[in-house]
């Protein structure tokens, strides 16, 4: 028995939604990073599924690019967090808000 492609698409949509929601409601910066990763991987799953459904290799190739970009993003993001952490020793977004208006 094979699982229809639509299920993967729905799963990806749910993951994307969880990621987006998490980013909006969680306040810990590291968890917010994870939520971004979740969203990117939901997009990857969608790409792979469509690639399979359309019988086209292009979608799978695109996933590699997205993975590389995600890795590069995390490197920069963690670097920024570390540089803030040195100064403040907090990773909670609400504590990092000196600018308002």
């Amino acid at each position: 028995m094979s699982i229809p492609g639509e299920w993967y698409l729905i799963l990806a949509a749910i993951l994307f939604g969880i990621g987006a929601l998490g980013l909006l409601i969680r306040r810990n910066v590291l968890i917010m990073f994870m939520c971004v990763e979740l969203m990117l991987n939901a997009a990857n799953l969608t790409l792979v599924t469509f690639s399979r459904m359309l019988n086209d290799i292009g979608g799978q190739a695109a996933v590699f690019f997205v993975l590389v970009v995600a890795a590069a993003e995390v490197v920069v993001g963690l670097g920024i967090v570390v540089s803030i952490f040195r100064r403040r020793s907090t990773a909670v977004a609400d504590d990092i808000s000196s600018m308002k208006g």
């Binding site: 994307f16 969203m39 990857n44 993003e73 993001g77």
Partner: peptide, 25 residues
Amino acid sequence: AALKYFILGGFSSAVFVYGIALTYG
């Protein structure tokens, strides 16, 4: 500022990639 830009930028990139995936589909 970098942290805010990074998190919202990452969010927008993820939304953009998902848009690409759906367009591809």
